[in-house]
Design a binder for these strands. Structure first.
Length: 630
RNA sequence: GCGCCCGUAGCUCAAUUGGAUAGAGCAUCGGUCUUCGGAACCGAGGGUUGCAGGUUCGAGUCCUGCCGGGCGCGCCA
């Protein structure tokens, strides 16, 4: 799929665009075709916001690259494009600068028009929920169905920091993709099947634990015990024998190993019974699944995730599909037998992808292949996204390559589905090492989130003690969770980031709390606006601060589509921070409610309301709550 | 040993997909202001973009080789 797939249909259509970059881009493509011929119709016009206001509002960098292809010097090419471009209705005269930059300045009357259109688009677009059939009216690309793999909890275990990023990032990507018109299908790939689970069930049954009275804490303890019980320390036994550690010591290790092997056998027998549908075992499995998921749903709720129970597609879901997957890999000749196992050899990789063990068992790669097949062939997704940490990069490269080799990514209309691993870095403590408790355990997600809310609450109480208690709680939750999310989303996904409470809860700088507060400030203008303010008063854009704010507002649709395309949420964060900054400058320089004339007042109120709308919408896409007061 | 990811101001991070003079926030110093929510705004100092080559009109970004840090590498998930 070409990199601009998600944008291309919008680029050539005739409808009026609210995005000046898209609008100008179309005019440039037309000019390029007029100047150099139709074979250049697919040229990316490279229209960008100007880097420096002294150059104008927008610029195109297309001439330098085009110069080589048409065999003329860049400035000549730029002049030729400017000559052909129909820009009079929106721009002042275009200027060629430097090696061939084309600088553009919007006409004074163009901004009000564009703002009207932008406001119209926002008014007409409901907030489409995930899987909603409604298309937002700024859908930039051809609507596609997208499967998003996210969260990924394990049965019998608490959610911990390791699930934080996949949940937050995955949730935001779902919202953004739905916003630009995709049919998004979240998929929560639960670790709910296999030997690990059987070990827990066997262990609980052996100890006679009453599953109806079990909570997740005890269940997790049972998980740890079961894992230890089954882990035979053969190396220790060998070592004890080698150094002749004494009969007593050796006998101890022998007993440990023998015990572990018994437990493991028991677990394997339990797994067989589970797989065969044994009523008691299946009932136990259902109970521990319910206990775990109930706790998970509480956390989803705390995080305001859009994923729900209906998006659960765990390993158990695929259990009947694993055999056929391997069979087809063998039949198609893509997989072959190697040392008793079934493997797919990946070109350029030393180690193959293992899809069936020599004992006949399946592996997690098998489940991933089955899951991708399901998403492509049964859900009919054209795009499958995995929001999983960076350590699994090699794994997904191999799995995707295996899918490509067997051809399951072929689309009915020709072409191939896009399989994409959205890899993210680790959450680190102040020492720069992955975040752990002092004893080296994973930090529970619930503890972390509750601490965020508590810390935010303390700040709110200190800064705004007059706020009623229930509102303080609401603010604490919105700010605490919002800060954690924003800290996670606002840096480049691939990098590790350092988790620091004081920085992420700061009310200054590029933080969630700062944006939430800017939203509240803008909101209070709208609240205080007198009744006489006309909601449809003409936009007036004359002051430099007004113009800067208007230009920032107009960048919103383009920002959203670039996030949908690159799957990089930090672009949206950076945008919202820029927007909030542009508003702050406007607000300090341009009186709104105290403007000199009512026309100016009404125009500025409208501008403020539009800013409020976009800031609120953007925060919503990040899954961050907005407030009336804080 | 092989492979992947990261290295940008004292600290935490950006840089419009190869564009013009590498930008923000914290911290430091200075300024604005009879608060439309000051939880604000403006300004200053601070850089050999880990190092060395290469590609071209142009490189933080692309290619090669080093250095440093992190993480993976058949029958766990």
């Amino acid at each position: 799929m070409p990199p601009h797939f998600w944008r291309q249909s919008g680029l050539h259509c005739r409808r009026m665009s609210v995005d000046p970059i898209e609008l100008l881009g179309r005019r440039f493509v037309e000019a390029i075709v007029a100047a150099f011929g139709s074979e250049f119709a697919e040229t990316d016009p490279l229209v960008r916001t100007a880097q420096n206001p002294q150059f104008g509002d927008f610029q195109s960098n297309v001439a330098m690259g085009l110069a080589k292809r048409v065999g003329r010097n860049p400035r000549e090419v730029a002049e030729a494009i400017v000559e052909q471009a129909a820009l009079n209705d929106v721009c002042e005269k275009a200027e060629v600068a430097g090696p061939g930059f084309i600088n553009l300045r919007l006409r004074g009357d163009a901004l009000p028009r564009l703002l009207e259109d932008l406001e119209g688009v926002l008014k007409n677009s409901e907030h489409p929920t995930i899987r909603s059939k409604t298309r937002s009216s700024w859908a930039s690309g051809q609507a596609a169905r997208v499967g998003v793999d996210l969260v990924g909890v394990n049965i019998a275990k608490q959610m911990h920091v390791g699930h934080l990023r996949s949940s937050i990032i995955g949730d935001t990507l779902c919202r953004v993709l739905a916003r630009v018109g995709n049919d998004v299908i979240p998929q929560n790939h639960l670790g709910d099947w296999g030997l690990q689970i059987a070990m827990v069930i066997a262990s609980l049954r052996r100890r006679g634990v009453d599953l109806d009275r079990l909570d997740l804490d005890h269940l997790e303890a049972a998980y740890r015990d079961a894992t230890l019980d089954c882990k035979a320390d053969r190396q220790a036994l060998e070592a004890a024998r080698r150094i002749n550690a004494g009969a007593h010591r050796i006998a101890e290790w022998e007993a440990q190993v023998a015990g572990a092997e018994d437990r493991l056998d028991e677990a394997k027998r339990t797994l067989v019974r589970l797989q065969q549908g044994d009523r008691d075992i299946v009932s136990a499995w259902e109970k521990i699944t319910a206990i775990t998921m109930q706790a998970c749903y509480e956390i989803y709720d705390l995080l305001d995730l859009t994923v729900t129970e209906e998006h659960n597609r765990g390993e158990s879901f695929y259990r009947e599909r694993l055999g056929p997957v391997v069979d087809e890999f063998i039949r198609s000749g893509v997989a072959k037998e190697s040392q008793g196992a079934i493997v797919v050899e990946i070109e350029g990789d030393e180690t193959p992808l293992l899809i069936r063990k020599s004992d006949g068992g399946f592996l997690y790669a098998t489940t991933d292949l089955a899951a991708i097949r399901y998403r492509l062939q049964e859900l009919r997704a054209q795009r499958v996204i995995y929001v999983v940490d960076n350590r699994q990069r090699d794994h997904f490269r191999k799995v995707f390559e295996a899918i490509r080799m067997i051809g399951w990514d072929r689309l009915p209309g020709g072409g191939r589905a896009e399989l994409r691993h959205v890899a993210f870095g680790a959450v680190c403590g102040p020492d720069g090492r992955p975040l752990k408790t002092r004893s080296g355990d994973n930090i529970r997600l619930k503890d972390l989130l509750l601490e965020a809310i508590e810390r935010a609450g303390a700040i709110v109480r200190a800064k705004n003690p007059e706020l009623p208690q229930d509102e303080q709680r609401e603010v604490a939750r919105a700010v605490g969770i919002g800060s954690v999310k924003y800290a996670d989303l606002s840096t480049h996904l691939i990098k590790d980031y350092i988790f620091a409470w004081d920085r992420m809860l700061a009310f200054e700088g590029n933080t969630g709390a700062y944006l939430q507060n800017q939203y509240v400030r803008i909101r209070s203008i709208g609240r205080k606006a007198p009744d006489g303010v006309r909601a449809d008063a003409p936009f007036l854009v004359s002051a430099a601060e007004e113009k800067a704010l208007a230009l920032a507002l107009l960048r919103y649709p383009g920002t959203i589509s670039s996030v949908a395309e690159t799957l990089e949420p930090h672009r949206l964060c950076q945008y919202l921070y820029d927007l909030a900054g542009a508003f702050s400058v406007f607000y300090t320089q341009c009186p709104v409610l105290k403007a000199e004339t009512t026309a100016l007042r009404d125009a500025r109120v409208r501008l403020a309301r539009l800013t409020e709308r976009i800031l609120g919408d953007g925060l919503g896409l990040l899954g961050i709550r907005t407030l009336e007061r804080m």
